[in-house]
């Protein structure tokens, strides 16, 4: 698993993908920082984290598009699937590599927190819960988008499909505002954005954390199952 993790991390930064992901994320986060903090003279870090959380739908497809789709396109999956390493370890290695880049990006956003802390007032608990929800939500998007990469044949299709799916998840959240109560309850229950709301109010929500972890576990499980099924159905 560590071999796959190391190789994937190396691949992120041997190619422009890693730099583009981190660079574009930080550029857009800087824009949000200017709009929501500097222009407003606000030290409300949670609303800044809320705005940054919308960037996951953009970053995660680029981060995950290559993970399995490119292996298929370049036929390097033959090396992985004929090596003495289980599908579970391959999947976890790739997932953890993407999460490592995601965490690195999150750490870099600490600069904004430091600036707010220097010139305004922030509460450590609030920052902690806000960032916890932000990271869990990002990890869930990575798991979902990696599943898409395992299901399609090229990185471009993986990125486009993942982005479409992420937007659909966001729209689901907006639909809940207009929907009848019973449907709104279901949509809110399933929405990664609604689930993040307690964190963005500075509250630690075990239910929301458990939901995000369940989404991650389910997406990884389905990814492993999809890879195995494809192997069994090869060419059929």
């Amino acid at each position: 698993m560590i071999a796959v993790w190391r190789k994937e991390l190396r691949s992120y930064f041997c190619t422009p993908v890693g730099y583009v992901c981190v660079g574009v994320f930080l550029a857009l986060a800087s824009l949000f920082f200017y709009i929501s903090v500097l222009q407003e003279h606000s030290s409300d870090i949670l609303s800044f984290i809320l705005r940054m959380s919308y960037l996951w739908m953009l970053l995660c497809p680029v981060l995950t598009m290559r993970l399995f789709a490119e292996e298929k396109q370049r036929k390097t999956d033959q090396l992985l699937f004929t090596s003495p390493i289980s599908l579970t370890r391959i999947t976890l290695g790739k997932y953890l590599a993407a999460v490592t880049v995601l965490l690195g990006t999150v750490i870099l956003t600490g600069v904004y927190t430091a600036v707010i802390g220097r010139y305004g007032q922030i509460y450590a608990g609030e920052v902690f819960t806000g960032y916890l929800g932000f990271i869990l939500q990002g990890c869930a998007f990575v798991a979902i988008d990696m599943l898409v990469s395992a299901l399609v044949r090229t990185p471009i299709i993986a990125a486009a499909t993942s982005f479409g799916l992420n937007v659909a998840l966001w729209i689901m959240n907006l639909l809940a505002l207009q929907a009848p109560a019973w449907l709104a309850d279901i949509l809110n229950f399933l929405s990664l954005y609604s689930r993040n709301e307690p964190f963005l109010m500075g509250q630690f929500s075990p239910a929301s954390a458990l939901f995000d972890l369940s989404v991650i576990a389910a997406a990884l499980f389905v990814t492993i199952h999809a890879l195995d099924t494809r192997r069994w159905k090869k060419g059929a």
């Binding site: 041997c14 390097t76 999956d77 090596s83």
Partner: peptide
């Protein structure tokens, strides 16, 4: 196993690639 299309990662150097495969194996 050497498949019909060698399973090479173009962005890695030959040494990095063999290190990776050795760890896999």
């Amino acid at each position: 196993y050497l498949p019909e299309h060698p399973p090479l990662y173009d962005e890695l150097t030959v040494r990095e690639y063999l290190f990776f495969v050795s760890r896999l194996r």
